[in-house]
Amino acid sequence: MTAKASDYQPVERNYHSTVRVGDYLYMWGGLQPDLPEVHNNEEKKSMCSVMEVCHLRTGRWEQKPTTGYPPLGVVSYAAAAIGREIFYFGGYCNHDDCYYNSLYSFNVDTFSWKELSPTTSHHGPMMKANCDMIAIKKNGEDYLVVIGGFGPSSNNTPPQPGAQYSGGVHQRCNEIHFYKLSTGQSTYSLY
């Protein structure tokens, strides 16, 4: 059940992001009390299928249901907004060594999720958390840029040429990946 906007305050959490679009803040996921330490189940789906929204002019929070399938990388993911969409990359699942390199979009008008690029261990950025993502425009095209991160060294993508990796079972990296929104193409680059 959704609480009334005037009474509602989000539950405590960490390892999450809050993104501004217009006059609203959108907060999703993170490590919350009672987040199941499983890959996926109904309780976890229910917790991750809501968006916390704060109207900046009034300071009031609301919890709103979403449609579609939200990312499973709910902890330490990266987020950035372009227009009326918020993009979510990677993250940790809150169990075992379950990291992601998927990319999702969330439309703030329809409150719906869409998977743009699924998690794979065969290409793209390494499966990771604790990275960052920014939105840029180059030659009139929108890009998302995923930078750095931390993830398992086993069962992961081939190393990016020129990138640096450090650590043992888990490693940090300085990968830089560009995702061109108009084509869905992911490329890497080091400056």
Rank of each mutant, 00 (worst) to 15 (best):
A3E: 03
A3G: 02
K4N: 05
A5K: 09
D7W: 02
Y8N: 01
P10R: 02
E12F: 10
N14T: 09
N14W: 15
Y15L: 14
H16S: 14
R20G: 06
G22E: 03
Y24M: 12
Y26P: 03
L31P: 00
P33A: 04
E37Q: 15
N40T: 11
N41A: 05
K44I: 05
S46G: 09
C48R: 13
V50D: 06
V50I: 10
V53E: 00
C54V: 03
C54K: 08
H55D: 15
H55K: 12
R57I: 13
G59W: 08
R60Y: 01
Q63Y: 03
K64Q: 09
K64S: 03
P65Y: 00
Y69V: 14
P70R: 03
P71Y: 05
G73W: 05
V74S: 07
V75L: 07
Y77D: 06
A79L: 07
A79H: 10
A79T: 03
I82N: 10
R84D: 15
F87Y: 15
Y88C: 08
F89P: 01
D96A: 15
C98H: 13
N101L: 07
L103S: 02
Y104G: 06
N107I: 00
D109C: 06
F111E: 03
E115K: 12
E115Q: 15
E115R: 10
T119Y: 05
T120C: 05
H123W: 14
G124Y: 06
P125G: 01
K128C: 15
K128L: 14
A129P: 04
N130P: 02
C131H: 07
C131W: 04
D132G: 15
D132C: 13
K137D: 10
K138N: 08
G140R: 04
D142F: 10
Y143H: 13
G149C: 04
G149K: 06
F150V: 07
S154K: 13
N155Y: 13
P159M: 10
A163M: 05
Q164V: 14
Y165Q: 08
Y165G: 08
Y165H: 09
G167D: 06
G168E: 12
V169W: 10
V169N: 14
Q171W: 10
Q171R: 11
N174M: 06
N174R: 00
H177V: 01
H177M: 06
K180A: 08
K180Q: 12
L181W: 08
G184I: 06
S189N: 09
